[in-house]
Amino acid sequence: MNQSEFVNIITPFKDRVYRLAKRLLISNEEAEDATQEVMVRLWKNKNKLESYSSVEALAMTITKNYCLDQLKSKRATEMRLVHSNYSDREPGLQQQAEDRDSWEWAEKLMNKLPEQQRLILQMRDVEQYDFEEIAKIMDMNESAVRVALSRARKMMREELTKMHSYGIKRN
């Protein structure tokens, strides 16, 4: 496999890898580094890629494991970085400022969820994977994925309702 063939394989899902990494690591820079790392790992194993039924699922699994390892080692060294780049947005989105504010709130709420629920919510509600794929990536069975997803969504609902009734969103 040469370089351009490899690039053709990873192009459809490299953004998803980045978004999953960002969901766990929060920081843009760390997510970019993680994405590069994952792609380099795939490249090093390029000869084995054909034996996998879905390279995308493999990439997502590697990303998940790599990012969880990163978080673990960060915790072990007691380095708690406070990320302040929530305000980072894609340019060119012609949306109302009010929408952006409320999206930031939703993002903060989502990033407060436990890692496993965050991963599953990301893969389902942002990336729209089906349960079978998520179960494979997470190495869980489908009903366990459903339970975790339902828990994550209900947690979001609870927080959003709380926020809504306090009127924080409307200030």
């Binding site: 490299k14 953004d15 890898v17 980045y18 978004r19 960002k22 970019e32 994405t35 590069q36 894609e90 989105l93 949306q95 929408d99 409320s102 999206w103 709130w105 939703a106 993002e107 709420l109 989502m110 990301q122 509600d125 942002v126 990336e127 729209q128 979001m156 609902r157 959003l160 309702t161 926020m163 809504h164 969103k169």
Partner: peptide, 19 residues
Amino acid sequence: QYRSMFGYFAQAGRQRFEK
């Protein structure tokens, strides 16, 4: 109150890896 959540999901899916 659910509008921000669904709006955010759609917006989060548009982020790109530029490097």
